[in-house]
Nucleic acid binder design. Sequence first.
DNA 1: CGCATTTGACCAGCGC
DNA 2: GCGCTGGTCAAATGCG
Length: 309
Amino acid sequence: MGDSGEPDLLSRSNEVSCWALGPDSEDNVYFFGRERESTLLKEFGWNYHLSGLESSLDPAYFAGEHRIAAADEPSDAAAAVCSSQLHENASSQLPASAAHAVASTEAAATATSNPSASSSSSDDPPEKCTVAGGGKLAETSTKVKRKGPKRIRQPRFAFMTKSEVDHLEDGYRWRKYGQKAVKNSPFPRSYYRCTNGKCTVKKRVERFSDDPTIVITTYEGQHCHHAVGFLRGGFAHCEGVLASQFAPLASQYLCLGPQFLREGLASALQSHQAASDVKEPHSAPRMSTQLITDDGLLGDMVPPGMRII
DNA sequence: CGCATTTGACCAGCGC
DNA sequence: GCGCTGGTCAAATGCG
């Protein structure tokens, strides 16, 4: 995970079995500028083909309030073909179609599985059964548990918000469980998990080093319960709600392909909008539904100020 | 007193 | 194998 890994990643990306997102593709779904996106997506486990795209980190591009980035981290087999850390052996032996199929299957299974079932999986058990970390656990029998299968990441979904507040309200209650200094960034990254005992959803919050006014929030997993807080203006309009709710969907669609992301997410958002209109016909302003990507194809789907980038 | 946050330590994974 | 970084744990601390 060193700095020197990125150029290699970019140059190598031509060889991997993931769909390409470049200027020639009509399926561009770019979320961050070229360089930064490479870093972020790499962190999230994506391996987009970035070559040829000019950096879009135009400050004007950030004029809006929110940016949403899909960040699915396919697990195990899927990771073998989609992860940025790239298991070149696996990817080189799989045709692109096969790789997509694996990724889709894995992600779909994760994203659509029964939340309670997924939370009971061996890789992501509640509380102390997690595989990673836990230095103090070494003194207990958990040392044995740590030898278990690789931790399988839940689908992840990130978005950027122009906000002075680090921890955006999203209708759920979160407990901070860690904070780490981020390399090449003066701002720390905070780790939160849902306070619901049975819910394994986590999120991490950090500030965009290039623009401290922007908060990057990454959700991982799917809530197995309803939000505890319904804020003024309507649940559908809470900051972060969309990203939180659509994380599993987005990751699923993205594994199918960018075009599926557009169509699927657009459909979901429309349903969401219709539902919120029914729930709060008067108090909540209608979603202006502006959904923005580099190619603009998503258009008009997200509440004011929120962008899928 | 109970719950949330802070913080230092630890482990896993990756690149070199 | 070593060093770095991300992610997590849990004791200590803070707060209502």
